[in-house]
Design a binder for these strands. Structure first.
Lengths: 164, 164
DNA sequence: TCGAAATTGAATTTAGATTTCAAAATGAGA
DNA sequence: TCTCATTTTGAAATCTAAATTCAATTTCGA
């Protein structure tokens, strides 16, 4: 798991304050479970429930995976997290608290996910929306294919073949 | 369910020939189940397994939903269909046999799906891929928000209703 | 037509996610 | 600080889409 640039103690106090504020806003209680789950979640980029649960369990094995589900759901409501569904598998939760929206290049061979931002694309998306009198609240752009490393390995696209 | 412009008899014979060809290529057998499922699938734009199963059952109630799953999976392998996951719910299968790739505007209120194509966006996607030495095989772009009608209704986000 | 091989459908299984509910924790007011 | 209504928790049960298993059936080349 990648670590963010700010030291984790800063992230920790920031995220705790953020969490506390949101909880108060909604008349909810600050439990140590929520605190730990949110802190660990906000420290990384994107994670599955399973993986976050595993991280949480390292610090406090008494916390159940259901609480992880529930807390992530809360974070989504408050737009600190966002659900993402790559394929039919597990849901991935993106940390959207501390950085701008980004899109993904997804390697169908090694499953590596590369993030990118492209202002031009966003601009044309807005144009499309205007053309249809549509109001965009969020978007998802995923480019699937082979990453640099997997192209070099000359892996022939195992099951899925060309399409673009 | 929308009907395509070509008369269904043309679609039927086209899809039958297409299916037959693909089956032969892969040494698979042409069963009347596969024929019916593929024909009904290729006649529309996008559909869930459940809905396609219901359509199939109208013509032949003896066909099981598992066969619909299996046949759609085959169609995906041959790129006549493409899996799509809007949210965490059921998988939607897109009919990609007869038309160019398109992207989607998705209304989070009424669940209406508007298709669009934008050459400029595709161009910049290619640029992004080049920058990362990535080879794109396919992509998914979904713009979520409120459609024209739902904006006008000044609706507050409630439960989402049926597909248009 | 025959028979090997593929396919089918029902039942079972898997896996992610949600619901239920009694017990425990939280926090606002005294 | 203490009390107690309210919220939250964790385990188990449940739900759902989808995959797997397997005996019976169908297909298709010889």
């Amino acid at each position: 798991m990648r670590t963010r640039s700010p030291s984790s103690s800063i992230v920790k106090s920031q995220s705790k304050a953020l969490l506390h504020a949101r909880l108060r806003e909604h008349g909810l209680k600050l439990t140590h479970q929520r605190e730990l789950i949110a802190e660990l979640f906000l420290r990384q980029d994107h994670i599955t429930v399973e993986d976050l649960y595993r991280e949480v369990a390292k610090k406090d094995p008494s916390i159940g995976i259901i609480t992880v589900y529930r807390t992530l759901k809360l974070l989504c409501q408050w737009e600190l997290a966002q659900e993402r569904h790559f394929g039919k598998g597990k849901t991935i939760y993106d940390n959207v608290a501390q950085k701008a929206h980004h899109d993904h290049l997804i390697c169908t061979h090694c499953a590596r996910i590369i993030e990118f931002e492209n202002f031009q694309i966003e601009k044309f998306q807005e144009q499309v929306a205007r053309d249809h009198e549509f109001h965009i609240t969020f978007h998802k752009l995923e480019l699937y294919g082979l990453c640099k490393a997997c192209r070099r390995d000359d892996v022939r696209p195992s099951r899925r073949s060309e399409h673009a």
